[in-house]
């Protein structure tokens, strides 16, 4: 599943201000609410659901990347966002490193295969060092949009 099929471009954050884990999740969810991708009335429940998942084990998968996610019945199709933190956020990652790059996914409960396809694409693209490091260095939302678009066009190989 290409980024263009699930990333809400208006919700992308390149200068995350959060320092803590819960704060970071809330900032990403707020971005999706502001972009109209999530219902404001569901915000607190979604943040809580993401944090409940994190308590079962961090989605900080190492190399400065985290993929916080949850299912939530308020969404009819999978929505995602990208967040970049210049200073890095302590996300209790597997390797202990701070997280600079977030891919958040909120999926409808009845579509597990879409969630897998989205994760597959994120994981595939992140294996490319160039894509990963350019994203972390992105200064504007347009930079991120451009990189996602190039990835969708297979500019980074696999």
């Amino acid at each position: 599943m290409k980024f263009s099929e699930f990333i809400s471009l208006k919700s992308i954050k390149v200068n995350m201000v959060s320092e803590g884990k819960t704060e970071a999740v809330a900032e990403l969810v707020q971005g999706l609410v502001d972009a109209g991708s999530l219902d404001d009335s569901q915000k607190d429940g979604i943040i809580q659901a993401v944090m409940n998942r994190e308590e079962l084990g961090s989605t900080g998968i190492g190399r400065g990347v985290a993929v916080p996610h949850t299912k939530h019945s308020s969404v009819k199709e999978i929505v995602g966002t990208v967040g970049v933190s210049k200073g890095g956020i302590d996300f209790r990652s597997l390797d202990g490193d701070k997280v600079n790059l977030f891919f958040m996914l909120i999926s409808p409960p009845d579509r597990p295969s879409d969630h897998l396809r989205a994760l597959e694409n994120i994981a595939k693209q992140l294996q490319n060092e160039t894509f990963c490091s350019f994203l972390k260095q992105a200064k504007t939302v347009e930079d991120v949009v451009q990189l996602l678009s190039e990835a969708d066009e297979n500019h980074f190989g696999s």
Binding site: G45, A49, N52, R53, G57, T70, H72, S73, P109, D110
Partner: peptide, 17 residues
């Protein structure tokens, strides 16, 4: 998946279909 139950519980009714 041991986390599936917790996740369904965190979602609203209908999540556990």
């Amino acid at each position: 998946d041991s986390s599936a139950g917790a996740e369904a519980g965190a979602s609203e009714a209908g999540a556990s279909g």
